[in-house]
Design a protein around this nucleic acid. Sequence first.
DNA 1: ACATATATTATAATTATTCTAAACTATTGA
DNA 2: TCAATAGTTTAGAATAATTATAATATATGT
Lengths: 142, 142
Amino acid sequence: MLKNSEFIDKLRSSGLRPTKQRLKICEVLFNRDKTFHFTINDLAKIISAKLNEKISLATIYNTVHAFKNKGYLKEISINSDKSYFDTNITNHHHFFDEDTNQLIDCNKGDIETINIKNNITGKKINSVEVLIKVASDNQNQK
Amino acid sequence: MLKNSEFIDKLRSSGLRPTKQRLKICEVLFNRDKTFHFTINDLAKIISAKLNEKISLATIYNTVHAFKNKGYLKEISINSDKSYFDTNITNHHHFFDEDTNQLIDCNKGDIETINIKNNITGKKINSVEVLIKVASDNQNQK
DNA sequence: ACATATATTATAATTATTCTAAACTATTGA
DNA sequence: TCAATAGTTTAGAATAATTATAATATATGT
Ligand SMILES: [Mn+2]
Ligand SMILES: [Mn+2]
Ligand SMILES: [Zn+2]
Ligand SMILES: [Zn+2]
């Protein structure tokens, strides 16, 4: 459970002014035990359910992108409908449950380190991500 | 170089009527030596550049989705802007060149087989895909 | 408190994609 | 052969996620 003043320091230290809106969003995103995977719409719903004041959708987009640019969030590509964001900014892989549309972190041990033997000439590797799509075992396909 | 009659058979065998539009799209997509990675917009541009008659955008969407559902194309998630499609329907992984926005197939040998040690209980694995994002080596970040 | 840079907001614009419903076409079988 | 039918194409409208605009509000340094 981080305190408000800790979020203020965090924001200031990355050149972001600690506004009321950003602090609320920090609370929602970072006062958690576990990784939080969310879409902008998920976040907007949580905010409007929990808060007395409301935050405009534009601000939610702006803030999430600012946090991503500062390295406090990662963006995950699952499908082309919408963006997913992730409070776990370490290198890690995902399960995606196609029944529930939930992203789940792979733990170290779920999957071995990926070893890239040949890279494209003249390019450097920025990220390596594995996405494992899963669905109900006992069911027929659509 | 497949013949028109081969595409007709392929379409008929999967319950798709071999229309003029579908056959043209088959030619563009499948008369190639190498894997073709494309967006709907890429395909629409190629069609309108190469063809005398034009195919409506709705038909291009319909056809690409029909081919995907029949297993003749795969859809690849890179970012949330748009969908990428792939004429290589085998299990394989990708490099994504962030400088050019090009998808490139990993060859067997570029990367070891991914071994999933722990799966989510009660779920079956539908796909495992690795995406390696690369960019220029000798350049500063944006 | 003042000046300035930044941030928030409502709203409009953009883009990819899907939907609709009318016109068209491939297939089937009488 | 040809009408009936089911499937397909199409233009255009609708939807949904995201980004842009520009006016208002706020945070910060002096
Ligand atoms: Mn994006
Ligand atoms: Mn979209
Ligand atoms: Zn994660
Ligand atoms: Zn590929």
